[in-house]
Simulated scan of single mutants.
Amino acid sequence: MIIDASPFDLPDHCAARVNVQVKMNGGSPFIEQIESWTGAPHFLKNDRPDERHGMKTARRRKDQAIETGRSGGESPSKAGGADDRPLPRPMRKTQKSVTRAERSEEIARTIFAAAFHVVGREGYAEASVSKITARAKVASGTFYNYFESRQDLFDQLLPTLGEQLLVSIRAACGTSTGIERERRRIAAYFDFCHENPGFLRILNEAEVFAPKAFAQHFSNLAAGYARALHRGHERGEMPELSEEEIEPMIYMLMGARSYLTYLWLATPPAMRRARAEELVDAYVKLAERALFKA
């Protein structure tokens, strides 16, 4: 079995050398060569320095032959009519480091997605590290390569989801202004809640289990509202609203949205799309009369 695998596991010249040694000496030297050629520790008792040196020399000569176009017969560049410049050698270390970084990011996203699923369905109290890692299909120890503790993950969960919510709202609003922007804003909020059913449990329980995240989330939301209302005020869209009234108005609008959400949650899931439209209409009437009517 080992002999059959050698051409696939080793370079061509290594495989040929191994096959010859197996025929001449049996199985033991073959294993010794595999260990030395695949990077086994130098202190292994069967590792032979002179053989390692011979292999390095052979590899170096082969590389030099490729670079100078003397790897046996006509060089690939001359055969194709190209110039005589040597082919660039692959940057293997850079490729490995990029792949490692991408893999690390993928694992972090997987753990985060698993935490969203577990906390969204079972709540913070029942969301143990073992449940999260089982869902992510990673070892429990891997979790601590990315998060200092379970609480560290909880403190990042809601603000990250909140940023995704704001991205969705900004995309839905586009370049709209005035009351149309408010309509799109609240409609996008209900769409996000519908598409991410675990979000509201993560939000509501965070006040107790992740108060730092809860405070940061509402600060981010208020900042988004403030930017929109200040721009609208500068455009003259809210003539009866003074600069000093913008901040309290923001929290009144956020409060209205929060309590409308309770009505939405009390609606059977199959009817929530239609219910959201009714709630959006009611919210828009309030916002239009409070903000945009002269």
Rank of each mutant, 00 (worst) to 15 (best):
I3M: 15
I3Q: 12
A5T: 05
S6I: 15
F8C: 12
P11A: 10
H13A: 04
H13D: 13
A15I: 05
A15C: 11
A16L: 13
R17I: 06
V22T: 07
V22P: 00
N25F: 10
G26H: 02
P29C: 11
I34C: 13
T38G: 04
F43M: 10
N46Q: 14
E51R: 15
R52M: 10
M55L: 12
A58C: 08
A58E: 07
R59V: 15
R61L: 07
K62G: 08
Q64K: 08
I66L: 08
E67R: 09
G69W: 03
S75F: 06
K78Q: 11
G80S: 12
G81C: 12
A82F: 15
M91V: 12
R92T: 08
T94G: 06
S97A: 14
R100C: 04
A101H: 03
E105Q: 11
E105G: 05
E105W: 11
I107C: 02
R109V: 04
I111H: 00
F116N: 14
V118L: 09
V119T: 12
V119F: 05
G123S: 12
A125H: 05
S128K: 13
I132R: 01
R135A: 09
A136C: 11
T142S: 10
Y144L: 05
Y146T: 07
S149Y: 05
D152G: 10
F154Y: 08
Q156F: 09
I169S: 00
R170S: 15
A171R: 14
G174Y: 12
G174D: 07
S176M: 15
E182T: 02
R185H: 11
I186T: 03
I186A: 00
A187E: 01
A188P: 02
Y189C: 01
F192L: 04
H194K: 09
N196A: 05
G198H: 02
F199S: 00
L200F: 10
R201M: 11
E205Q: 15
P211E: 07
P211H: 08
F214R: 01
H217G: 01
A223I: 10
G224F: 04
A228S: 13
A228G: 14
H233S: 07
G236M: 04
G236R: 08
M238E: 00
P239N: 10
S242A: 10
E243G: 09
E245T: 08
E247V: 06
E247C: 08
P248Q: 11
M252K: 02
G255C: 01
A256N: 14
R257L: 11
L260D: 03
L265Y: 04
A270Y: 02
M271A: 10
M271I: 04
R272K: 04
R272H: 07
R272E: 01
A274T: 06
R275Y: 10
K285A: 12
R289Q: 06
F292W: 05
F292Y: 13
A294F: 10
